[in-house]
């Protein structure tokens, strides 16, 4: 093919995405969030875990002049830890929690979904029964069961409990992805272009890679865009319940959990991580919606 005027689905999608204001705003926020997470050691003014009780519960810079300090622009928590630094380091945990389990989910889910949907038979049966079992419980409940069961073991200790959260979220959520992909593949398998590829002499591998996969990728990408904030939210929920990330490692959920008891007299340490969660969630939602529209070449 010539290079001039070459169009690809992804390039077209990118230009459609660029035209979508809400999605671009979402993308900017997500990029900013990722940057903060990656650059946390540079950006954070203090050690997020080390506090000085003499400076505890300082107001943010817009608070009561008697109880604030220019050294802690967003104030401190009850242990005197800098809220700004903790928010910044939390972004790092959230980023990991958002992307690592989702990568596992996508890898396993897409592979299993493709095989189950395309070849059917026992692979499909097995998948659907697994789906039935896992869908019988609320997702969060299932995660909580796994986390509480494995918290005392060596896995629970790895990375202050982050690894256990990866594993539990991935265990529960890959079936959803597999089911999504399977459904897409089943619908595609009935379409004539798959028959056309077979009639042309394409191998199964080629059909899966060239014809099936690109057509299921769009919903997968959209699912990822919604899955990432979902995982973050799960982590926050677990940490809020006290079974997620082990303190003193900060995460937005942990911060809310710790600040919760004192929320009446000192609401800021709770509100600020809550705002962070909401903004990032909203950004991902906008981005996900934008991607859904952009990836449909018929739009």
């Amino acid at each position: 093919m010539t290079g001039v005027g070459q169009r690809s689905l992804w390039r077209d999608a990118a230009s459609r995405l660029a035209a979508n204001r809400a999605a671009m705003a979402g993308l900017v926020v997500v990029a900013l969030f990722a940057f903060v997470a990656i650059a946390a050691p540079i950006l954070a003014p203090y050690d997020p875990a080390a506090g000085d009780t003499r400076n505890h519960e300082l107001d943010p810079f817009w608070g009561d002049p008697a109880y604030r300090s220019a050294a802690f622009p967003l104030g401190t928590d009850q242990l005197g830890r800098d809220v700004l630094s903790r928010l910044i380091w939390s972004a790092r945990v959230s980023l990991l929690i958002g992307f690592v389990p989702v990568s596992i989910i996508v890898t396993i889910g897409v592979a299993v979904g493709l095989v189950a949907g395309y070849y059917g038979r026992w692979a499909d049966l097995l998948l659907m029964r697994a789906v039935d079992v896992i869908y019988a419980f609320p997702e969060l409940l299932f995660v909580i069961v796994i986390v509480t069961a494995a918290r005392g073991t060596w896995i629970g200790e790895l990375g202050s409990g982050i690894v256990l959260i990866f594993v539990s979220i991935a265990t529960v959520s890959w079936v959803g992805m597999a089911r999504l992909v399977r459904g897409q593949v089943l619908a595609l398998r009935g379409l004539e272009f798959i028959d056309a590829a077979r009639a042309m002499g394409a191998s199964d591998r080629r059909i899966l890679v060239r014809h099936v996969l690109p057509n299921v990728l769009a919903p997968v990408i959209v699912a990822v865009a919604f899955g990432v904030p979902g995982a973050m939210l799960t982590e926050s929920a677990l940490s809020f319940l006290g079974i997620g990330i082990k303190p003193p490692t900060p995460s937005w959920g942990v911060m809310i959990n710790e600040g919760f008891t004192l929320a009446i007299q000192s609401p800021w340490p709770v509100l600020m991580p809550a705002v962070c969660i909401s903004v990032v969630m909203l950004a991902f939602t906008f981005l996900g919606d934008g991607l859904r529209e952009a990836l449909d070449p018929r739009a």
Binding site: R7, E192, F193, D195, R210, H211, P214, N215, P297, R298
Partner: peptide, 16 residues
């Protein structure tokens, strides 16, 4: 070879 009935479903929408 084969020529199909549905001109919409018989071409992969994501290929040029």
């Amino acid at each position: 070879q084969m020529i199909f009935q549905d001109p919409y479903a018989s071409l992969n929408p994501r290929m040029t």
